Measured scan of single mutants.
Amino acid sequence: MGKSNSKLKPEVVEELTRKTYFTEKEVQQWYKGFIKDCPSGQLDAAGFQKIYKQFFPFGDPTKFATFVFNVFDENKDGRIEFSEFIQALSVTSRGTLDEKLRWAFKLYDLDNDGYITRNEMLDIVDAIYQMVGNTVELPEEENTPEKRVDRIFAMMDKNADGKLTLQEFQEGSKADPSIVQALSLYDGLV
């Protein structure tokens, strides 16, 4: 993909415009910024974590950033290329609610087996709590990752089998306004 070129080839721009919710001009602008920050044309896990640390200076986002990195890194080569970056950004910032929920499901399904187990969710929720640090005051019933996961599973795990399917996750998330709101945070920002 033209590693350190400051412009993408027209056919690449066209393809990314088809695969995302961005215009050709927006794709070019994002590429310019991506190459400025990642001259090699790729972003590794350490660089990704560094970006998260800028956004969450009062907590430790390392663990959460690693989980997000793994979802962005579609081809699992340990690096995020621009096409992976822009497609994930498109879903998280401008995707439909169902697209965002499928993306979030992939984030929580750490072993990619098609289910979110209690332990997988606990890993992610714990990482989120570490990331936000003491900057967020949580209600008593959610002031630990374990309590939050218990509440989520009580609401979403309809067949009580200890794991969530994509359908259970989507339906449960849509029924909880706070989850829908959290997924909409990026709307309109890009």
Rank of each mutant, 00 (worst) to 15 (best):
2 G>C: 02
3 K>T: 15
3 K>W: 00
3 K>R: 05
3 K>N: 15
4 S>T: 06
4 S>D: 04
4 S>V: 14
4 S>F: 02
4 S>N: 11
5 N>F: 14
5 N>Y: 14
6 S>P: 12
6 S>N: 02
6 S>G: 01
7 K>T: 07
8 L>I: 05
9 K>Y: 14
9 K>D: 03
9 K>E: 04
10 P>L: 13
10 P>S: 12
10 P>Y: 14
10 P>K: 04
11 E>M: 15
11 E>N: 00
12 V>W: 07
12 V>Y: 13
12 V>M: 08
13 V>N: 11
13 V>A: 10
14 E>I: 10
14 E>Y: 13
15 E>P: 15
15 E>N: 05
15 E>S: 13
16 L>G: 15
17 T>K: 09
17 T>H: 05
18 R>M: 12
18 R>H: 09
18 R>I: 13
18 R>T: 06
19 K>N: 14
19 K>P: 13
20 T>I: 15
20 T>E: 12
21 Y>G: 06
23 T>W: 12
24 E>N: 04
25 K>C: 08
25 K>A: 12
25 K>S: 13
26 E>V: 15
27 V>F: 15
27 V>E: 01
27 V>M: 13
28 Q>R: 07
29 Q>M: 08
29 Q>L: 15
29 Q>W: 15
30 W>H: 03
30 W>R: 04
31 Y>Q: 15
32 K>A: 12
32 K>C: 11
35 I>C: 13
35 I>D: 09
36 K>V: 08
37 D>E: 02
37 D>C: 14
38 C>V: 15
38 C>F: 04
38 C>S: 10
40 S>L: 00
41 G>D: 03
42 Q>T: 14
42 Q>M: 12
42 Q>L: 07
43 L>V: 13
44 D>E: 13
44 D>A: 07
44 D>I: 14
44 D>S: 03
46 A>E: 12
46 A>D: 12
47 G>Y: 13
47 G>H: 06
47 G>P: 01
48 F>R: 02
48 F>D: 12
48 F>A: 11
50 K>D: 01
51 I>T: 11
52 Y>C: 05
52 Y>W: 06
52 Y>K: 03
53 K>G: 01
53 K>P: 02
54 Q>W: 01
57 P>C: 08
57 P>D: 00
57 P>W: 04
57 P>Q: 01
58 F>P: 02
59 G>V: 09
59 G>W: 03
60 D>E: 05
62 T>G: 05
62 T>K: 14
63 K>G: 02
64 F>L: 08
64 F>P: 09
65 A>E: 01
66 T>I: 10
66 T>A: 09
67 F>A: 13
69 F>L: 11
69 F>Y: 00
69 F>C: 11
70 N>K: 04
70 N>C: 05
73 D>P: 05
74 E>V: 06
74 E>L: 00
76 K>M: 08
77 D>C: 13
77 D>I: 01
77 D>Y: 10
78 G>I: 10
78 G>F: 15
78 G>A: 02
80 I>Y: 09
80 I>M: 08
80 I>N: 13
80 I>S: 12
82 F>N: 13
82 F>V: 14
83 S>N: 13
84 E>N: 11
84 E>W: 15
84 E>H: 03
85 F>E: 13
85 F>R: 00
85 F>S: 12
85 F>G: 10
86 I>N: 12
87 Q>R: 11
87 Q>P: 11
90 S>G: 15
91 V>S: 03
93 S>Y: 05
93 S>Q: 05
93 S>P: 11
93 S>C: 05
95 G>N: 12
95 G>L: 02
95 G>D: 08
96 T>N: 12
96 T>C: 08
96 T>H: 14
97 L>H: 12
97 L>S: 12
98 D>A: 07
99 E>K: 07
99 E>L: 15
99 E>M: 01
100 K>V: 01
100 K>P: 00
100 K>G: 12
101 L>G: 06
101 L>I: 09
102 R>G: 04
102 R>L: 14
103 W>T: 15
106 K>N: 10
107 L>G: 02
107 L>I: 14
107 L>E: 02
108 Y>A: 03
108 Y>R: 03
108 Y>K: 13
109 D>L: 06
110 L>Q: 02
111 D>A: 11
111 D>E: 13
112 N>R: 03
113 D>W: 04
114 G>V: 06
115 Y>G: 08
116 I>Y: 15
117 T>N: 03
117 T>W: 03
117 T>L: 01
119 N>Y: 09
120 E>T: 06
121 M>S: 01
121 M>T: 13
123 D>L: 02
123 D>H: 11
123 D>F: 04
123 D>P: 13
124 I>L: 05
124 I>N: 07
125 V>E: 05
127 A>F: 03
127 A>N: 01
128 I>M: 04
128 I>A: 13
129 Y>S: 07
129 Y>F: 05
130 Q>N: 05
130 Q>V: 13
130 Q>H: 06
131 M>K: 05
131 M>V: 14
132 V>P: 04
133 G>V: 05
133 G>I: 05
133 G>M: 11
134 N>E: 15
135 T>S: 03
135 T>N: 03
136 V>E: 10
136 V>R: 00
137 E>D: 07
138 L>C: 02
139 P>L: 08
139 P>M: 00
140 E>F: 06
140 E>G: 14
141 E>A: 04
143 N>F: 08
143 N>G: 07
143 N>Y: 09
143 N>M: 13
143 N>L: 04
144 T>K: 05
144 T>C: 03
144 T>S: 11
145 P>W: 12
145 P>G: 05
146 E>Y: 12
146 E>W: 06
147 K>T: 07
147 K>I: 12
147 K>F: 02
147 K>V: 15
147 K>N: 06
148 R>N: 12
148 R>W: 04
149 V>D: 00
149 V>P: 01
150 D>K: 04
151 R>K: 10
151 R>H: 12
151 R>Q: 09
152 I>A: 08
154 A>D: 13
157 D>K: 14
157 D>T: 07
158 K>Y: 08
159 N>W: 01
160 A>E: 09
160 A>V: 07
160 A>W: 06
162 G>V: 10
163 K>S: 04
164 L>P: 06
165 T>N: 15
165 T>V: 09
166 L>S: 08
167 Q>Y: 10
167 Q>S: 14
170 Q>R: 09
170 Q>K: 07
170 Q>F: 09
171 E>K: 05
171 E>A: 07
172 G>N: 15
173 S>M: 00
173 S>L: 15
173 S>A: 06
174 K>M: 11
174 K>W: 13
176 D>H: 09
176 D>K: 08
178 S>A: 11
178 S>W: 00
178 S>G: 11
179 I>T: 12
179 I>M: 09
180 V>F: 07
181 Q>H: 07
182 A>W: 14
185 L>A: 01
185 L>S: 07
189 L>T: 13
190 V>F: 01
190 V>A: 08
